[in-house]
Design a protein around this nucleic acid. Structure first.
Lengths: 178, 178
DNA sequence: CCAAGATCGTTATGATCTATAACCAGTACA
DNA sequence: TGTACTGGTTATAGATCATAACGATCTTGG
């Protein structure tokens, strides 16, 4: 008997299909749609990359920021990574349970914790860092250095466009009907 | 008394901070990190944009694809949008409950449904489409037409890089330790 | 024709990430 | 001192995503 036909790979649209003729052609004009799909691919790959280290995208991000900001406090860390404080607690519990991070009472403020990366955590972070760098190169394959830099720049611009409901309040959201 | 200092806006890094000196500088070198933040901004904005229509990013995507592919079946729709079939069921229940989409038994296959957009659905989709287009322009403010096209191209390339565990299996994932 | 296998939609369930309210201990300040 | 605020926490809910398993139906090989 023949195998179950094709594993899953249906060519829905090629990378150079300039907003072409796929069944999702309309959505392909939306940055958010293309970005969601690209991000899905990235997240799947980075999580697979980090899995051998016992990390995920989220836990790696937290670990890396603490590593480079020793003595950081949870509130500030939450600000930096745009994570709500309550959600950060569980992540830190996890990292602390893995002996990668320690919470130490801040000497000047007995409410706060100072976050530090353990030796084990630093080593793991370093190894994971290299794996993630390789992952990045994989995902960016086909992009030249300039294109890659332009991509980062565009992403940061979009991020900043999001956090500025500044002057465009007038023409902002259309209210369809009451 | 003075107001509670500053609402929340801490300038963590400006868009043109070329992998600069922020507390998350290391992560800024990762495409996934920048993309996650950009996508968060996009998703928040597009959901706010679609809220007056009673839609979200996900439901809008489904509605738009059905609109442009009348008679589509659920399995195929799931393939197109990379949604698992079970998850699609609830989304379609929602859209059907809003009288935007109908499920009709396929004449040639009594298991399958043919998905169609109602008149109400088409009108809503058209209006939402325009709002989303404006949203897109908001988020892409500061990008020229070429940069914007390059962004789409890069995103599609990344997506396709993700779905190709082809020949690079050798140097792929590092196994840290048993 | 018919039995085995595959497909379609569905239910149930769990994991992950996110968002909010409320709380306690501790701090800041008027 | 007392009132308001902050830092970390708990509890809880929502949204998205992933998997196993099921009944109904189609397909196919013998």
């Amino acid at each position: 008997m023949t195998g179950p036909a094709d594993p899953v790979g249906v060519p829905l649209s090629s990378p150079d299909d300039e907003g072409g003729t796929g069944p999702d052609a309309i959505l392909r004009n939306n940055i958010g749609y293309d970005m969601k799909r690209a991000f899905n691919a990235i997240q799947a790959d980075v999580n697979a990359t980090l899995q051998p280290f016992g990390l995920r995208m989220l836990t790696y991000s937290v670990l890396a920021v603490i590593r480079d900001n020793n003595g950081l406090r949870q509130s500030r860390l939450a600000e930096i990574l745009l994570i709500e404080r309550p959600n950060l607690v569980l992540i830190l519990d996890e990292l602390e349970g893995l002996d990668l991070v320690t919470r130490t009472r801040a000497p000047d403020d007995r409410r706060a914790y100072e976050l530090t990366v353990t030796l084990k955590g630093r080593r793991l972070c370093d190894r994971a860092f290299r794996a993630v760098a390789e992952h990045d190169n994989r995902m960016a394959r086909g992009l030249g250095a300039e294109e890659r830099a332009a991509l980062h720049k565009a992403l940061r611009l979009i991020e900043s466009n999001g956090r500025s409901p500044d002057d465009s309040r007038d023409t902002r959201r259309e209210i369809p009907r009451p």
